[in-house]
Every structure is written in structure tokens, then in C-alpha cells.
Design a protein around this nucleic acid. Structure first.
Lengths: 343, 343
DNA sequence: CAACGATGCTACATCGATTGAGCATGCATG
DNA sequence: CATGCATGCTCAATCGATGTAGCATCGTTG
């Protein structure tokens, strides 16, 4: 970044304002932070100083202010990505809800990179965050450990950890119901049912494991067993999905369980390359997206209940739990009626 | 937020570490911030202090550190929303690019609320941001004015202002080409062309005005004039679009220019309610979304070149321009071939 | 008119990290 | 053995805002 011009006016401080107003820095400080009535500053002086502050473009130096205050009211969050509906909604709602509670939200995006996750967490703690929401972290426990050592509360969101309270979706039930829906639609539309493909996620990932468990349970329920070579877990990103599918061939009348909208981007790309018609495939996707919901092959999406998850998060922020609870939030199955797409 | 436990260990400071290590705070400081070689601290002491710092879960207090340093290296950004592709990508790329340049990005989401935009800007300046990227602001000049008074550089992104350099898409050309594409597809698929509908955005909004100009130009080029009651600009949000369309009826073989993917959500909802088939409508949308690109009615999307816009932004950050330039970045017309959707 | 309380302010230590100046020691050199 | 210089550290001022303690002034009351 360019050096600031040597000649340009520096940011005014309370000392500058005090000099202009012919008063003391303490008076200016209390006037500008709203404690002036308590400190018996006259309304006349308060008005004059406020006016001068506005004229000079004064903005408090939070570094100095927070250094002195005992509490920062800063609440930090790390998220893996912004550019999909789920995490975008989490980030946006988090900011709104934090502000509504008089807290200062600071969010950092960590690209699913464990080292960046850790560095970002350390950075937020350096900003004196009082609490850190660790969202979708690949290694939440490393961060939880550091937070504990630094005396900062951590809360895991989306992916659970073992050394801090966790709030996650009920991935098992969500996946089981979605799987059952896809299977029932295959029966209705194709008149036959075969085991589904499971595509996306990581085998070591708690959410993926739970969803796979739900996936298996739904198959078992109708006496079907899943096929190991139809379980593909190359990560979440579209290009990883494409690469993993490259060697596979999909029969007509197949069904797919897609483990996130991010993965779905890759799957759709691949389906188009494979020249599969919309009529001969059925799929469902964990996570919701308004446009993905309109894909002709799509029979349902599992929407994670972001408002409920964040509501619970802020409850834990306000009243720290005893012990390392894990709270599961039910998902919302968004069944897609063919009426909306065939016409 | 819950009070921090009175008994719990406070965050360790360099004074605590100095005491444990039996050395001075200055030594600890220089060891932990990497200037210890310059200050001729022995490697032995450096190692011991680093180890103790790690054991104690030390994290520098950025409030104290930044207060003393002359530069913060913080670069702020405000964005209206996270939960759509365009702004999600801007936020994500901004963080990546800022970090790559050794800067600390801090982003705040402002919900298209002018007051929140202003408050967020003031907050970022209070964090000692050296530069503020004002993205898609409804009132960028109010913020630009405050930044000027506070001696902080501002750069407008997406929507231009008059008192700071601005980087915007070439909305005119982008909209003209998209309009021409929609019209040509109507000709090809329907064998007839009628003036398009223009849906979404705000009449006072620079981008909307420019896009409307491009929209008109494309019509004029083929000797068509637009119909005033087919220009609907109720804002960007889906529910505003739905409300504005509620009284309208769309003839078969109509064409729509949709002014953002956010608006498109509402338009699609409305089309489904109107029970319009995918075959009798053609639309194009300004902004790109991977799933919206698969809608059967969709013939093309205008992708704003986010990497180029941010690249230019960081060029301006590094070498401040003389005067208030306005830089226009060409858009990418993503033509959608029917092959991808009919099968 | 002394004592007292209310009013309206100022002085100063403090938060934690940074950094220029300076001090003590050890070693080599003339 | 005095001098110079490199080495390895410490001291103390500083950044800007906060808040407690305290000071001066004024009006009121006994």
C-alpha cells in the first residue's frame, strides 16, 4: 500500500480536539464516548466539542480505546468460503445477529486451509475477540486448544470438535430422509430402485461420515445395500468432484446423493459432459440453493437451518455451557415438486 | 456475552513472558515480532522465549501493537451482501488478494442500508484501516466525504462515487450485448422479436441506468423501441421483484432482461406461479451464477470480471491515482448453448 | 461568614507493545 | 594495559483513550 503522504493531515486525536476547543482531552473523551453526563460536563461544552469533532472528521482510535477498556465486545468467526449459499448465509446472519446484540463481528474466510484457519484464529484473538466461532474447520481442535491456552472461548459451528461446544446439523436424519426421498422418486419415475451414488465430502469429515450413515440407513430400510465403488469422497470442490467422476460411467436411471451445492456444481458439469438427459437421472443435494432447486433432475435439497444454528450459537455465547456439549439442529427437507420444473 | 470468569487466567502479555523467562519485555517483544536479529538478541534466548510464548498460549495484543506502530496494514471493505455469487466472490477474492500483499483484510456486510454503510465505514476507520473499499454502496459520496475528512483513502467498487476513484463494470456494453443476445435468440427460437422487459435495480442507481442505456441501444440497433411499462425497477431483492410483477401479465414468447441474480430469484418464482413453460420465455441475466446458468429459459449471463476488478482495485491501493478516475472493466458475456439444457 | 454541597472541569496513571538510546561485558589490537 | 568495537541485553518514552481522584468555583444554609 502506498505510503501516506507526509504532508497530509494525520487523523485527529482527542488531544487535537481538546486544543481546538480549549479544553482537556479527558473532557473530549467523555463527551465523545457518551459518558459526559455522568461526568458533569456542561451541555454547552459537549455540543461545541461534538461539532468540532464532526468538522475535523474525528473517529475514535479503537486500538487505543480497546487497549484501555476491559472488554472488546468483538466476536470473531472463521468460515471456509463465502461464495456459496450456506456459508454466505451464515456469515451474513452472523453479522446481523452480532450487531443486534451490541457485539462487533469480525469474519475471516479460510479457504478450507488448516494453516490459514489457525492463523486467522490467532489473528482474531490478537484483535482481542472475546469469543471465536469456528465454522466448518478442518482441524477445529487445534484452534480450540489454542483458544483454551489464550483464555478465549471457542464454539464450533457446522463441524464439531472435541474440546469446545459444537453446534452441527442433524446430518444423519437429514441425509437419511433425503436419501429416502431420492429412492422413492426413482421408484415412482423409473419404476425401479437401485442403490444411489454418494458424491462429495471427505471420509474423515464428521458431517460426511454422518451423512453416509444416514445414506446407508435409508438404503437398509428398504432392504438395499450400498455399493462401495459408488461412494466417492474426493473433497467438496467442483473440480475435485469432476476429476473423481472422470473415470466412472453412470447408467441411465441412476440416482445421486450429492454432498453439497459446491460439489453439485461439478456433478452437473460432469452430467452435461456425459450427455445425460434430465429424464434419466434423479438426484438430491445436501444444502440448499434457489437456482439448484430448479434443476430438472433435482428431487430435493436438505436445507441446513442457519437461523436456528446461529440462534443456538448466540445462546452459548451468552451463557457458556458446562462441559463440551454437542447440539444437533434438525435440517429442513425441501422436497421439489416436478410441477415447478416440467412446465 | 458472558463475563469472563474472574478466576480464569488472563491473556499473557510480554511482561508475563519476560518475568517467566527472566528477561526484559523489550527482548520478548523483539523476539516475538521478528526484529530480534536486528536487535542482537542471542538465538538461545530467542528460542527459550518462543517456547515459553507457545506454552502460555501467547498472542500479541494487536490493539497495543497497532497503537504504537505507524502503519496498521489494515484494508477495509464494505459489501452489501454475502449471499450471492457476485458479492461472495468479491469478498472472498478480496481477502485472498489482500493477504497475498501482506495486508489485513476486514470486511463488513451492510445490507444495502445507507446508515449501516456509513456506520460500518466509520468503524473500519476506527480500526485504523489505511484504505477503505466501498462496494456497491447506496451513498458512496457520504462515505467518501467522511474518509477524506479523516484522511483515509476510499475506493469505490461496483457503484461509482464522485469524490473517490471508482472501479465499475462496463455496464453499458455488457447490458447491450446481453440484450442483443436475448433478442437474437427470440428471433431464432420464436421467429419473431418484441421489445424485452427490464426487471430489477433502482432508477437512481448508476449501474441500473447504464444497463438500461445498453438495453435501449440494443433495441434501437434493430429498429425497436422499448416499452416504458415494461421497465420495472423496484430494487434488487427477490420479494420486491415479485411484488412489482404481481400486477403484470407476461405474454408467451416474451423476453426478459433481469438485472441481477438476486432479482432473478424473484422472477423465476413469479414465472413458476404464472405457469409459464420453459419453452415460451427467453431471459438473460446480468451477473453470473452456475446454477442459474442451467435454467432452461436462460440464454446468457453477463459475468462481471471480479478478478480484474479487484486487480485494478489493488493497483489503485498501491499507487493512488491523481484525480477521481472512473475505470470501467469489461464484462464477460456467458452465452448459454441450448445443448446444455435441452438434454 | 464559615461550612458544605453541587457543578464543571483537569491531572495523571494506565492498558501492552514498540523502539531509540544506552549500558555492561568480553575480546582483540596496538 | 588502555582503547576500540562487537555482542547482548535493559530502560524509558511513546502511541490515544479511559476513568479515578482531585481541584477550583459558586451558591446556599445555619
Amino acid at each position: 500500500m502506498a505510503e501516506s503522504d507526509g504532508n497530509s493531515a494525520k487523523r485527529p486525536t482527542i488531544y487535537d480536539l481538546a486544543e481546538i476547543a480549549g479544553t482537556s482531552p479527558s473532557a473530549v473523551s467523555s463527551i465523545l464516548n457518551g459518558t459526559w453526563k455522568k461526568r458533569r460536563i456542561s451541555e454547552k461544552l459537549a455540543e461545541r466539542v461534538s461539532r468540532i469533532a464532526a468538522e475535523q472528521g474525528y473517529a475514535v482510535n479503537l486500538q487505543a480505546s480497546l487497549l484501555r477498556r476491559e472488554r472488546s465486545r468483538i466476536i470473531g468467526m472463521i468460515v471456509p468460503k463465502y461464495d456459496n449459499r450456506y456459508f454466505g448465509a451464515i456469515a451474513e446472519q452472523f453479522e446481523i445477529m452480532a450487531r443486534a446484540r451490541g457485539l462487533f463481528p469480525v469474519i475471516t474466510c479460510t479457504q478450507r486451509d488448516p494453516d490459514l484457519e489457525f492463523e486467522a484464529a490467532r489473528e482474531l484473538i490478537s484483535y482481542q475477540a472475546e469469543c471465536l466461532i469456528v465454522t466448518g474447520a478442518t482441524d477445529p481442535d487445534r484452534i480450540g486448544e489454542f483458544c483454551a491456552a489464550a483464555g478465549v472461548r471457542a464454539i464450533n459451528l457446522d463441524l464439531p470438535g472435541s474440546n469446545a461446544p459444537s453446534i452441527v446439523s442433524d446430518n444423519f436424519t437429514g441425509a437419511r430422509d433425503l436419501t429416502a426421498l431420492i429412492l422413492s422418486r426413482m421408484e415412482r419415475d423409473f419404476g425401479e430402485i437401485r442403490p444411489l451414488w454418494f458424491i462429495g465430502g471427505r471420509s474423515k469429515d464428521h458431517n460426511t461420515a454422518e451423512r453416509l450413515r444416514g445414506f446407508r440407513a435409508a438404503h437398509r430400510q428398504i432392504g438395499l445395500s450400498v455399493l462401495p465403488d459408488q461412494i466417492i469422497m474426493p473433497g467438496y470442490s467442483p473440480h475435485k468432484a469432476i476429476a473423481a467422476m472422470a473415470t466412472k460411467t453412470l447408467a441411465d436411471r441412476s440416482g445421486l446423493f450429492v454432498n453439497s451445492t459446491i460439489t453439485l456444481e461439478g456433478v452437473i458439469h460432469w452430467l452435461n459432459e456425459q450427455r445425460h438427459g434430465s429424464g434419466d437421472i434423479r438426484l438430491g443435494c445436501f444444502d440448499w440453493d434457489p437456482f439448484a432447486a430448479l434443476l430438472p433432475q433435482n428431487v430435493g435439497m436438505t436445507e441446513q437451518n442457519v437461523p436456528a444454528m446461529l440462534e443456538t450459537t448466540f445462546e452459548l455465547v451468552e451463557t457458556p455451557p458446562t462441559g463440551n456439549v454437542r447440539i444437533e439442529i434438525p435440517c429442513i427437507l425441501r422436497e421439489i415438486s416436478p410441477a415447478a420444473i416440467t412446465r
